[in-house]
Amino acid sequence: METVKSIGIDAGSTTLKIVGVNEEGKILFTIVEDADPKVEEQTESILNKLKENYDIESSKIVATGYGSNLIKADKKITEITCHAKGIYEHFKSGGTAVDIGGQDNKVILISKGGKVIDFIMNDKCASGTGRFLENTAWRLKIPTEKMAELALNSDGEVKISSTCAVFAESEVISHLSRGEKLEHVIKGLHRAMVKRITSMIYAIGFNPPLMLSGGVAKNKAVVKMLEEELGEKPLIPENPQIMGAFGAALLGLSK
């Protein structure tokens, strides 16, 4: 049975991510689940199941994310520090880390040595977050994962002027009722979201490379448009959702 030295738990607004690492920081397991409202019980249940395959008795537990206050952990560290650590260790590079999560975005400037130089987060608003796309997908009865495909294959684009998730939804409906093609509207919606993220990146000062994390980094249309807007091909980890939990686990190794 392998010994897990540190476990990072990222209790986000939409998903719960758990990563276990050994003494060298090598990932032993990753778990991603939809976040339960009772995240503390959900976490406990996952940890109990892990005991069947891993020795986690002496594991350091580091929690991050909005639900971290509810989780029993040895340390609680903010998402900014955890994402920066995870992304830096994954790419072994400083630059601009952009985490696009379910309900918030973070842009973090990381130094060559891996320090957080500066950061910016969206305010009490879902503009530019995963929820921005999810809302409309739900309203149009389109699976979220299909949204990127529609946008990528669109031969046109409608301008969505609102960056507010609620107003954008109304704007989408009004465009469709005027006869605009669905894929043009969906592409416009992606563009509005990307423009919001880009403005956050420029607000803090873009320093390449651009490194993405968070669930929305899996959306190929968002990735392509970010490249178009910034003129820089983003680096994306194989599993962008776990970067915060990975960083938390790594921070559990440091004294």
Binding site: I80, T81, F119, M121, D123
Partner: peptide, 16 residues
């Protein structure tokens, strides 16, 4: 909560 996270992250950054 966003504000709390920002302030905490800022202090973490200063400590680092």
């Amino acid at each position: 909560q966003q504000t709390i996270t920002r302030i905490k992250a800022f202090i973490e950054m200063l400590k680092e």
